[in-house]
Amino acid sequence: MMFRVEVDNIKKNYGATEALRGVSMRVSEGEIFGVIGPDGAGKTSLFRILTTLILPDGGSAKVMGKDIVADYKQIRPIVGYMPGRFSLYQDLSVEENIDFFATLFGTTLQENYSLVEEIYSQIEPFRKRKAGALSGGMKQKLALCCALIHRPQVLFLDEPTTGVDPVSRKEFWYMLRRLKEQGLAIIVSTPYMDEATLCDRIALIRGGKFLKTETPQQIIADFDHPLFAVKASSMSPLLRQIRQIPQVLSCFAFGDTHHIVLKDKGIDSLQGKELLSTELERRGFTDVHINDIAPNIEDCYMYLETLNS
């Protein structure tokens, strides 16, 4: 079976900085592939390499079976790319932007209306408004519309939901799932861990390397250490003290609790709680609340990061 996107051991350096240290992935038709990681992890570099905007320093990649270095001219018309920064003409209206990009690709809005209909219908009421005057969510919808106008085979979305309100984010992801049903391969990057479960498969990226590439469900299922959430009145000394307990693998602040991963995989939840409460009491914490919890993607990310550092 042919993959829409095949990436093998891609490397990219900026001077002495290694932005990508050999990443590989496969993306099929009708799949949403998420690249999840913090800023500076190499997401944008990867996207720019795959959209033929910059050259890799090592490795190879194919989009729709075409080499990203040699056949870049054939790739450009068949991919849709939405950069992380809003990259449309702010001083043109919504309508003019769409017309402009349609003309650029030698097509019209009407021709591919079926693909963009759902998105376009949401921005249509504002079609006379200047793109620069749209809200964040609307801007992203317009950008998506422009990226889809030529019915691409692969869609690259670089942090499409960064800086967008939660409701618009939800709508955006809904639209992505609808597009996927039309057979598009969608590669999307995001720094938001909670969006990982909305992807079919995800790659956790850190420091230019994929920590793991799997379905989000499998990544969570693979997490086999005991995990606890701890709360007390004085949180920051608590964090320091927990990290000194020899049985603790890692501990991170996580909202209003600390998440603790224990080294011993065999410990059940009761034993774990007991171990932690005695250890913490011995260190002078009397008001701690300990709960065993199910891991989410962020726990997995932190865990994998600890293993790799």
Partner: peptide
């Protein structure tokens, strides 16, 4: 500077 070049480049033009 505005990033529109990025989008223009990824087009058949």
């Amino acid at each position: 500077e505005r990033g529109t070049m990025e989008v223009l480049l990824v087009s058949p033009v």
